[in-house]
Design a protein around this nucleic acid. Structure first.
Lengths: 174, 174
DNA sequence: CGCCGGATTGATCAGTTTCAAGGCATGTGG
DNA sequence: CCACATGCCTTGAAACTGATCAATCCGGCG
């Protein structure tokens, strides 16, 4: 069991049911830390979406460092608490939001986190997005098309998206 | 901002959308700790479901204690990581499970955690259960009736449930 | 006894899924 | 350089699960 920090690339962490249904809990981008909640029962799996480079530390090693240095212990707690906050927001999305609201929330999250250019360069497929949002890939595709038709966003290839109207996305986000 | 531990009773923590839709992230029972992920943006609200008694510590105070004592820091991290694990399992439920699977999972979770008697004495209403499982209260009620008809459980009043066949519940849990 | 909130049950509706077909890139080999 | 295969995405039509609307029931309590 290790704890990872991404330097470049992107990773998805997810859980699966025996019959193949998958729920992606989070996408991890450069700078992000994951592996903090080692579930021995239902394991949380991590996979790179694109070519990725990570730093990692053994859990035990980090525990020793935290025991020795209170600042490290504090950061460890803060980082875990951040993951928990994200999970709590995501439970609201999965349990109570409509398809459009979910997609809008996803676009805004990626817009916030993929700070690169004006255009979002999504590293993940429609299926990944669907499994993150608790939808089917068809519903994700349809919803994106619908937002395109409404002039909220533009495509330059399926994974290159420009947000034209963040305001209306914010409204959809509920 | 405080961190709480329940001594007796039961608490629900949840998030709400502006239009009133609610998602309960967790039910907290005696011994449980909550308040570890203080979201400044979307606040996480906590309410007692029944008469409840809690211990609480100021966040800052706990931080100081953690800085001074590595054992406390370690427990703090472990507890937060446990909440994160629960949230990850619950995301899978909310994003990918069917109504019956959700209700089965709920019953088994409560069976595991309410260790008192043979009979489950649920402290929460159907609406609370629904908001925890991302369903409507009607669907929860119908699903429980269906499980009753199948002989999986018995009622002694709406909130007093006896599990007759944990094995089949486990199968439904997927 | 009658009220009241919570729970059950029924009928219909709607959003999302499922099933299915077709399109658009990208890359490979003839 | 083009034909064709492949993977991913889009679009359409039908089906289904769970939601909504609505009525009734039950249990506790004044």
């Amino acid at each position: 069991e290790y704890i990872y920090q991404i330097s470049t690339g992107a990773v998805r962490t997810f859980k699966m049911l025996p019959d193949g249904r998958r729920q992606i809990g989070a996408f991890h981008l450069p700078g992000d830390v994951f592996g903090l909640a080692s579930g021995t029962v239902h394991p949380l799996t991590a996979e790179a979406i694109v070519e990725t480079r990570v730093h990692f530390v053994g859990r035990r090693c980090l525990e020793r460092a935290a025991a020795a240095d209170a600042a490290i212990a504090s950061r460890l707690w803060a980082t875990t608490a951040n993951s928990l906050r994200h999970a709590e927001d995501h439970m609201l999305l999965l349990g109570r939001k409509t398809a459009v609201e979910r997609v809008a929330a996803f676009l805004l999250e990626m817009d916030r986190r993929l700070t690169s250019a004006k255009m979002l360069a999504l590293p993940m497929s429609r299926r990944d997005i669907a499994d993150y949002l608790g939808l089917t890939l068809e519903t994700v595709s349809r919803t994106l098309s619908q937002l395109h038709a409404q002039g909220v966003l533009d495509f330059s290839g399926a994974r290159q998206i420009t947000l034209r109207n963040r305001h209306s996305l914010n409204n959809l986000n509920a």
